[in-house]
């Protein structure tokens, strides 16, 4: 079997007495959409922060493309092909969407330490950025500073930035939150398209979307993975039903 793109083993992190992540084992395989579901406070966002390197784990390991990355800084993991969208949009208010995407593209195009050449002259860069913005449906709003964008548009831009990093592993923390029906549908279609190109970890509350999109689903409750399987297996799993899907025994 092909080695998974991302593997965590026994990944744990506590905050005081609370075990936000407690021995989490997850694999993300090439080409799959792996959904992570669970009630609020289950530790899903903590898991994403651990994997992306925003916070350090207490114990456990993270392997990206077969290499241990548990102690590497966020920037190094990004350089190895990990991209993440934030649950709450993290953007620069005065910069346009186009500028955000261009900046993200520089990662694989010589970096940012170039002081003289005007960035506006780099037409190849701009064309590629516009292509990505078109893909998320943001092209017509590309030159408006982020401060003037709606909540849903900022969410779309988050996805565009993540795509511009040309990731092998994409971590999406509730990408559809606050997007509206049309935006959600477009994003679902986009994720479907991207499925073959990279491994995607999707945290999402809308079960319909999850069951429609995900190849595999892991259910997290109280910091632990209680079940992993395809949509059918998860639907019929008794533990999941009692713990999460709301069918009280």
């Amino acid at each position: 079997m092909v080695e998974p793109l991302l593997t965590t083993r026994g990944l744990s992190r506590g905050f005081g007495a609370l075990k936000a992540c407690d021995g989490v084992d997850i694999d993300i395989r090439a080409g799959e959409i792996h959904a992570l579901i669970g009630p609020n406070g289950a530790g899903k966002s903590t898991f994403v922060k651990l994997v992306s390197g925003e916070i350090a784990p207490d114990s456990g390991s993270i392997h990206l493309l077969g290499k241990p990355v548990g102690t590497l800084p966020m920037t190094a993991r990004a350089g190895m092909g990990m991209a993440r969208s934030f649950q709450v949009s993290a953007l620069a208010p005065s910069m346009t969407g186009l500028e955000h995407v261009v900046l993200a593209l520089l990662q694989h195009r010589g970096g940012v330490f170039h002081f003289f050449r005007p960035i506006a002259r780099d037409t190849g860069l701009k064309a590629r950025a516009e292509e990505i913005l078109a893909r998320v449906g943001m092209l017509d709003r590309a030159t408006i500073p982020v401060a003037g964008l709606s909540h849903g548009e900022r969410r779309q831009l988050e996805i565009a930035i993540a795509l511009a990093l040309e990731p092998r592993v994409l971590l999406l923390d509730e990408p559809m939150a606050g997007m509206g029906a049309e935006g959600s549908a477009r994003l679902a279609a986009l994720l479907n398209e991207l499925r073959g190109d990279m491994g995607i970890l999707l945290i999402e509350h809308d079960m319909e979307t999850v069951f429609a999109l995900a190849d595999r689903i892991s259910v997290m409750v109280g910091g632990q993975i209680v079940a992993t399987g395809n949509a059918g297996e998860i639907r019929s799993n008794a533990t999941v039903q009692s713990a999460y899907l709301g069918d009280a025994p």
Partner: peptide, 8 residues
């Protein structure tokens, strides 16, 4: 934070 997230 975002700048770090895109690898810089």
């Amino acid at each position: 934070l975002r700048l770090g997230n895109i690898g810089v």
